[in-house]
Simulated assay, not measured.
Amino acid sequence: MSNLELIIEEKAADIGNFLVGRLLPFREKRAVGPFVFIDHMGPTKLSDYQNLDVPPHPHIGLSTLTYLFEGAIFHRDSLGSAVEIQPGAVNWMTAGKGVVHSERTPEYLRATDKSLHGFQIWVGLPKNLEQMNPEFHHTEASEIPQWEENGIHYKLIAGEAFGKKSPVPVYSKLFFIEIKNREKARLNIGNFLFGEVAMYVLEGTVNIEGNEFGSKQLLIAKNATLCEFEMNENSTVYLFGGEPFPEERYIFWNFVSSNRDTIEQAKLDWHEQNLEAFPKVVGDEEEYVQLPRAILKHR
């Protein structure tokens, strides 16, 4: 019996100057473990007159995880954080009851040709922490656990697996793992995983149960403990997963919650620019992304 539950094709979504490949949510699979949203950004080339400019926008009920392969993004938020994200580092922002942030091309790159490639991920919060105070943590690439075994390179970007723990301060049982190889290799790593698991092939191909899979697909296993696959030469894969929440998570625009009323209140607070619920982004106060009128519920 096949362990592949679902194969999700990456679908394009426009976020401004370039398209991203949306992997989650999907109509047949709304989450994998606590992961509720995964965007694959790029790879894209931006000319000297093109820049990433995502003005201040709000979040509730989740943690955002930004992980870059190429390029740089400057992050600012309503907590006062101001940091440049470089490849291999992890930006982990926990929205809790409400946070606002912006993402832009750093000033020193704005008049030059540049590239951008990476993941934008949302991780839901446990129900008892959905209203926690917002937090921000930046973890440098050098702090992320990485090791080599039998010619295969592993990196534990977030969570716990393989008896190791990433310093990224997550709030639920999860894992986000990078695996790279040079020579063809077979992996049977189910004993090190738990809950649900999805695989994204960034480079190269993998063989699962006699079938070959390449990029632009999210492969979801029925059982993480049966995670076995073959990586062909010079491949890179990412594994996302962990323990799913017992309650459903609702997603509307940038808001995630187990309670629809909480989302409705967040919509109203952002629409009315309630600064107690959603303070201004420090150093980026002049503009903001308006709530799409299509999701504003009239009262």
Results as ranks from 00 to 15, higher is better:
residue 12 A to D: 12
residue 133 N to W: 06
residue 175 F to I: 06
residue 54 V to R: 02
residue 6 L to R: 12
residue 179 I to R: 09
residue 268 L to S: 08
residue 24 L to C: 05
residue 86 Q to C: 03
residue 59 H to E: 08
residue 181 N to C: 15
residue 13 A to V: 14
residue 218 L to M: 11
residue 182 R to Y: 13
residue 111 A to P: 00
residue 208 I to A: 03
residue 256 V to D: 03
residue 179 I to L: 14
residue 242 G to N: 00
residue 219 L to N: 02
residue 34 P to A: 07
residue 123 V to T: 04
residue 40 H to C: 09
residue 191 N to T: 14
residue 53 D to Q: 10
residue 61 G to N: 05
residue 30 R to S: 15
residue 229 F to W: 02
residue 131 Q to T: 15
residue 249 R to I: 15
residue 35 F to E: 08
residue 251 I to M: 15
residue 297 K to V: 06
residue 46 L to M: 11
residue 164 K to Y: 08
residue 68 L to E: 05
residue 20 V to A: 11
residue 23 L to M: 14
residue 219 L to D: 04
residue 232 N to E: 11
residue 205 T to D: 12
residue 60 I to M: 08
residue 14 D to I: 08
residue 93 M to Y: 10
residue 80 G to K: 09
residue 12 A to C: 01
residue 254 N to D: 08
residue 232 N to W: 09
residue 8 I to H: 12
residue 70 E to M: 11
residue 59 H to W: 06
residue 29 K to I: 14
residue 267 K to S: 08
residue 104 R to M: 09
residue 295 I to M: 10
residue 87 P to R: 08
residue 202 L to T: 08
residue 112 T to N: 13
residue 4 L to G: 05
residue 34 P to S: 07
residue 75 H to D: 10
residue 39 D to T: 10
residue 223 N to V: 01
residue 142 S to V: 14
residue 238 Y to K: 00
residue 111 A to L: 13
residue 6 L to I: 04
residue 205 T to L: 09
residue 185 A to W: 05
residue 277 A to G: 03
residue 183 E to F: 14
residue 188 N to W: 05
residue 143 E to V: 05
residue 127 K to V: 11
residue 220 I to Q: 00
residue 226 L to H: 00
residue 172 S to H: 07
residue 165 K to Q: 08
residue 167 P to N: 11
residue 132 M to Y: 06
residue 26 F to G: 08
residue 67 Y to A: 03
residue 290 Q to V: 03
residue 237 V to A: 01
residue 240 F to P: 04
residue 72 A to K: 12
residue 185 A to S: 14
residue 289 V to F: 04
residue 209 E to A: 07
residue 289 V to H: 04
residue 112 T to V: 12
residue 158 A to Y: 02
residue 201 V to G: 11
residue 266 A to S: 10
residue 294 A to Y: 03
residue 43 P to W: 00
residue 12 A to I: 13
residue 115 S to A: 09
residue 71 G to I: 13
residue 281 V to S: 02
residue 180 K to S: 14
residue 286 E to N: 11
residue 291 L to E: 08
residue 287 E to H: 07
residue 255 F to L: 14
residue 30 R to M: 12
residue 115 S to Q: 12
residue 56 P to D: 10
residue 261 D to S: 13
residue 4 L to T: 11
residue 135 E to D: 07
residue 257 S to L: 10
residue 107 E to N: 01
residue 131 Q to I: 04
residue 100 V to A: 14
residue 171 Y to H: 15
residue 212 E to S: 13
residue 175 F to K: 01
residue 209 E to H: 00
residue 258 S to T: 13
residue 241 G to E: 01
residue 117 H to N: 10
residue 63 S to H: 13
residue 286 E to H: 09
residue 104 R to Y: 04
residue 254 N to Q: 10
residue 24 L to W: 04
residue 243 E to A: 07
residue 155 K to Q: 13
residue 28 E to S: 15
residue 117 H to G: 07
residue 142 S to L: 11
residue 283 G to R: 05
residue 93 M to W: 06
residue 79 L to W: 02
residue 259 N to P: 02
residue 264 E to I: 05
residue 77 D to V: 03
residue 79 L to H: 06
residue 64 T to C: 12
residue 135 E to T: 15
residue 270 W to K: 07
residue 292 P to R: 09
